[in-house]
Design a protein around this nucleic acid. Structure first.
Lengths: 146, 146
DNA sequence: GCTCAAATGATAACCCTTATCAATACATCC
DNA sequence: GGATGTATTGATAAGGGTTATCATTTGAGC
């Protein structure tokens, strides 16, 4: 939390922007939530800390957090964007259960390596990727056989 | 085209739905377009065949095409959904240039294999995945060094 | 052909997100 | 510490893409 705040302050200062109470509230709210949160969830959390926070401000601040490297946009399947922590959270991919929505975060070095090979094959410079695996988790699969 | 039409007809018949002129128009329009089209593009193409087609109908029919296995939803990064052909189009992933938007379709058996290993590791039944690699294509990278 | 449910198209509504703008708060300079 | 000028705020409206509503039309089976 201390680190994140310092990171955001530096990001703002470097661009002539200001550290405000609203931005601090949104940052605290976001850090207190688990992964894969919608902006709406951040709005609710922020208003528990300070009911006066406007939703436009939260949208703007979440975008700032992404630019500052504190948040990262995750999957957005139904038109709603989801965000997750990016600071001190190593890169990972997602394995999602299509029944119950459970999300497993994983990292697989074989996949990463193979992706690098694809970049080389087509002469692209890598700048990131998004991998979502979909399936049925063990618990939901067990229900099917009951 | 004949196959696709037959496929759609069977899909509709099995569900007590009807093959209509509008649905035929949308199917023809969609099949005549290249990969990664927005619904708006399908609307334009459909209205070139039959100006009277309503946009709500195109949205509904594209969804039908997805359910029938003729179309597949591709990436949707800016809030707009994109669709691509799914019939007689082998599974593939996408490598996208973040500068010029060029899209390379590729299939990599190493990645596919490694994904299967991830499913096994977590006990999930596979039901599909989405992989988008982002980078800078050779042409755009060359411009940077000019 | 008749019948009846499904489908259409025009329109309004919906959701998420962004723009507008007067009022306010912040950081800097004195 | 206080004035100054710009960034920021929050309320509201607007925007874009998608979906719901509903009277009218169309299709498939009898």
């Amino acid at each position: 939390m201390r680190d994140e705040r310092a990171l955001l302050e530096r990001y703002l200062r470097d661009r002539g922007l200001k550290m405000t109470r609203a931005r601090e509230t949104v940052l605290t709210a976001f850090l207190g939530l688990e992964s894969h949160v919608s902006v709406e969830a951040v709005i609710e959390a922020a208003r528990r800390l300070d009911p006066g926070v406007g939703q436009a401000t939260v949208f703007r601040t979440v975008k700032l957090l992404v630019d500052a490297g504190l948040a990262r946009e995750a999957c957005h399947d139904d038109g709603t964007r989801l965000f997750e922590h990016a600071y001190n959270h190593a890169h990972h991919d997602h394995l999602t259960c299509i029944r119950c929505g459970a999300i497993v975060e994983f990292i697989d070095t074989d996949i990463e390596r193979a992706q690098e090979a694809v970049y080389r094959r087509y002469g692209f410079e890598s700048s990131g990727h998004r991998l979502e695996l979909y399936g049925v988790c063990p618990a939901c699969a067990a229900e099917d056989t009951d």
